[in-house]
Amino acid sequence: MQKNAKKGQGKLKGVLNRNISGWVLILPSVLLFTYIIWRPIIIGIAYSFFSLDGFSPAIFIGVSNYKDVLTDTNFLQTLWNTVQYVFWSLVIGFPLPFICAVMMNELVHCKSFFKISTYLPVIIPGIATCLIWKIAYMDGSGGLLNMVRYMFGAEATTWLSNKDQVIPLIIISMTWNTFGRTLVMYLSTLQGVNQELYEAARLDGAGLFGRIRYVLFPHMRGVLLLLLINQIIAVFNVTEQPLVMTSGGPNGASMSLGLTNYFYAFKYGQYEKSLALGVITFCLLSVLTFIYFMVDKRIND
């Protein structure tokens, strides 16, 4: 036992000694990570069980903050909205970059032109995108999309002020903004596909869909799943788009958990609730990620 412990210590020492310059070099980053990222996260979780005096914890109140957040009459509606955001982003935003990447990969001419064109919206700042789309979606004769409708002789219609449309419309604007980034990742993965396999499939008489099914898809599965999880997490936290475009309206129809959290903290100064809701969101996402890994493992096995 003692021997083992000693051995372990010796081993640790060995590891440290062997790479001492390496350890020293990463020390600043480790310190910064701890100080700037891990410390606030842990403090945030701890503080969510306190009532705060300004930003300092005053009284330990257990799960009272959580109760306040969960019993809010709008919590379930907001959670449901958030799920809808994720749902629509998977329907609209997830397949699109993949399909476009496959199509562009098949292109012979103008590849760079399309690559650059699809990537351009990514370099527009997020808030600017929101404002552009807000103008496009404006009700009445001033809205860009309504102007297009006028051109075709149709009447102006309502966009973001329609409760049933507001979430998909916001998702369309988000997809427009970010799909270039995902597309580039797909493209680079596609270019890693062994061309011999591709040729072989072609010679065996596989059409486009056959090639996608038997060559591309198995190769891309990893990156597809990774981006899926990424997207779910990113969209689950959707905040600035509804903040800029609708303020969560009409009547809370586009309110998301992220925006609720933002309002708690920065509109009403209820930092306790904001922390508690942050932890709740974190837990929900952890559960989702865990389920994903379980499913992934089962499929792999």
Binding site: T158, S161, N162, K163, S247, G249, P250, N251, G252, F263, K267, Y268
Partner: peptide, 18 residues
């Protein structure tokens, strides 16, 4: 009062969009 305004904002949005 800010929270009251937010709640009433919701009512107003509802009646002028629905």
């Amino acid at each position: 009062c800010q929270q009251l305004y937010a709640v009433l904002d919701g009512c107003i949005q509802e009646v002028i969009t629905n």
